[in-house]
Design a protein around this nucleic acid. Structure first.
Length: 583
RNA sequence: GCGCCCUUAGCUCAGUUGGAUAGAGCAUUCGCCUUCUAAGCGAACGGUCACAGGUUCGAAUCCUGUAGGGCGCGCCA
């Protein structure tokens, strides 16, 4: 359990006890009380603002109330002292034995440590990747894939019921273009010279083998046939092939999905019409003419009546069209239906991971979800900024036409999926990310992946040595959890345990904020605390993990090393990165 | 013109949802290998949190405005 949440409860209980005695007035709101780790380690281990938020309603001076509370808190089990500081903070110092117990928690829970019941089984749908099935994935897609995949794992660890979903945009004009591009490759496979791929079609050679397969299956049957005869067949085959390509890329990156939803299937099943009817029933659809965007008149602008959704009633800037002039649905219309479908399948919270170029889309979709579900479901859209591919500090030049485009798959094959996954989380999602292909494989502390992995590998190195240093001792986590830990007294040792004990809180905070990058940063801090302790042992022999003359101290430290390795492994598992035991 | 995101140390970035004296890494300077991996560690230097107001016990964090950067802006997805 998150120890800070636990202390918050204990503080609230203390306040309640004082109220029951009549020392404090009834009706105080304890919701604003926080229990947090203070920034400055000199301020103890748990700090609470309780006195400051309760002083006014209680009609007391903050510091007086603080002292009253501190006297009660100081005698709680595990608490060494409670001091009033600053404007009315109460700083708690915890006993070494309290931290030893936290290490036991880690060892008892293993890599399951950090799991939370915060989500209470709430149903969350995370939609990510959703790259158009028109070609292999690029590096930018990879970022969204990792952010979504890790966020899903994180939410699962925090106790949510998570559905990982991919939305296949197989119903728009782009897949028709894909079909035509394939037809060209098909003619090429039949021996025709096609020359340069015309503007507006997909030039990539990934369609070549699909074209060959079409030629093998259909011969020249569609070579000169009118488009209407082959378009659908080619489209279906092309989409299937591209989706297979994308799934292959995702597998190489270790990214999983539970559900692949087809836009085309949704449209054909009448889902869009149903959603539209629903909005009509709510009186949110009308025929109208939109004003042109101010200060930026499109060249071919002319006023035109459209079928509009009153998204501006729900926080959007303007109302949005749901039908094209030919009567077909806009992308927005099917996306409304799709999100409604996700909600009908049980999603209470929906998270979409999109590229930053979709920023203009956020308000209308949030508005639509609000309208369709009557506020019963919430939508959070996380936008991922661009990834700049670099090599030794220089941008990698890419051009699709010149064939110098670097695909996600090439990067994975180059540096490995673990590196790609970790690096994608070294920035918060809405910040630009420089991905330096040279630096990320360096074996130095410049490289955060290495730095964390090295800590884990070092720990396992100690554990290997421990087998010889402690003959006959049971070094399994469960056994170490029962070891005598009294030898762990050094500041650096306790500091490391504090870091480990923060893991449940980090999981909860990151899950609540939908910010998976926090995990990567946290692991860097744990690794730093461990490397620091390691080096302290170089200078002070008594702090080395394995003490030939002191079995009890050795066993206690092996427990600490094991606990550190477990927490790092637990975090890396959330990131989908394999912890290495040797480097 | 409008909307969204961003602006924190020389550089690249964190900042625990409003807490106390704002933190890392790189770079610079100085230290630490007879030892469980020096693939690492410690110390020093470095700040008007873009700017100006406001909200309150308290603001890098919330609100308003200004400047600079990115993205988007009626039948593309």
């Amino acid at each position: 359990m998150n120890l800070f949440a636990e202390f918050k409860n204990r503080i609230a209980a203390t306040v309640a006890a004082l109220q029951a005695e009549g020392t404090l007035p009834a009706g105080l709101d304890t919701a604003k009380i926080t229990a947090e780790p203070p920034r400055d380690a000199n301020h103890g281990e748990v700090s609470t603002n309780a006195a400051m938020v309760l002083a006014k309603p209680a009609g007391m001076k903050p510091r007086d109330l603080a002292q009253m509370l501190a006297d009660r808190l100081a005698v709680l089990p595990g608490v060494d002292s409670a001091e009033v500081a600053g404007p009315g903070f109460i700083n708690l110092r915890l006993a070494a034995s309290f931290w030893h117990d936290r290490l036991r928690d880690v060892l008892a829970a293993g890599t399951g440590y950090g799991a939370s019941t915060m989500g209470a089984g709430r149903n969350v749908n995370v939609e990510y990747v959703s790259a158009n099935p028109t070609g292999p994935m690029h590096v930018g897609h990879g970022r969204g894939a990792v952010v979504g995949d890790v966020l899903a794992s994180l939410l699962a660890k925090a106790g949510y019921a998570v559905t990982r979903e991919y939305y296949i945009n197989d119903a728009g004009a782009q897949v028709d273009v894909l079909a035509r591009s394939l037809h060209l490759r098909y003619r090429e496979a039949l021996g025709e010279s096609i020359g340069e791929i015309p503007e507006g079609l997909y030039p990539g050679d990934y369609l070549v083998p699909v074209g060959q397969a079409m030629a093998a299956d259909f011969g020249d049957r569609f070579r000169d046939a009118p488009e209407a005869e082959w378009l659908e067949i080619f489209r279906l085959r092309a989409v299937d092939a591209m989706l297979a390509l994308i799934k292959d890329d995702l597998a190489a990156l270790g990214v999983r999905h539970d559900v692949f939803s087809s836009e085309l299937a949704l449209v054909e099943a009448g889902g869009v019409q149903a959603a539209f009817d629903e909005l009509v029933g709510k009186g949110l659809i009308y025929e109208g003419v939109l004003e042109p965007p101010k200060g930026m008149l499109p060249e071919d602008w002319e006023p035109r009546p459209q079928t509009l959704f009153r998204s501006s009633d729900f926080g959007d800037d303007v109302d949005r069209p749901l039908k094209k002039s030919d009567g077909s649905w806009t992308y927005f219309a099917s996306d409304i239906a799709y999100h409604f479908d996700k909600h009908r399948r049980g999603a209470q919270t929906m998270i979409d991971i999109l590229g930053a170029d979709h920023g203009g889309y956020v308000k209308r979709m949030v508005a639509a979800v609000k309208a369709m579900t009557g506020g019963a479901a919430e939508l959070d859209i996380k936008l991922c900024q661009m990834v700049n591919l670099m090599r030794d500090g220089q941008p990698v030049k890419m051009s699709k036409r010149a064939g110098t485009f670097v695909t996600l798959r090439e990067v994975i094959d180059d540096v490995g999926k673990d590196v790609v996954r970790f690096i994608m989380l070294t920035r918060k999602n809405d910040a630009h990310l420089d991905f330096d292909l040279a630096k990320v494989t360096e074996q130095s502390k410049d490289n955060p992946v290495f730095y964390v992995q090295y800590a884990h590998a070092r720990a396992h190195s100690v554990l290997r040595h421990a087998v010889e240093a402690l003959p006959g001792a049971d070094l399994a986590p469960a056994a170490l959890a029962k070891a005598d830990l009294a030898a762990l007294t050094d500041e650096a040792e306790i500091a490391l345990i504090k870091q480990l004990a923060a893991w449940p809180r980090v999981v909860e905070g990151a899950a609540e904020a939908h910010e998976p990058h926090r995990i990567a940063y946290y692991l860097g801090e744990v690794a730093a605390a461990f490397h620091s302790l390691w080096n302290k042992g170089r200078e002070t022999t008594e702090l080395r993990f394995l003490q030939p003359e002191r079995q009890d101290a050795s066993l206690a430290r092996v427990a600490l090393v094991r606990g550190m390795a477990l927490v790092v492994a637990s975090g890396l598992m959330v990131l989908g990165v394999t912890p290495v035991e040797e480097m």
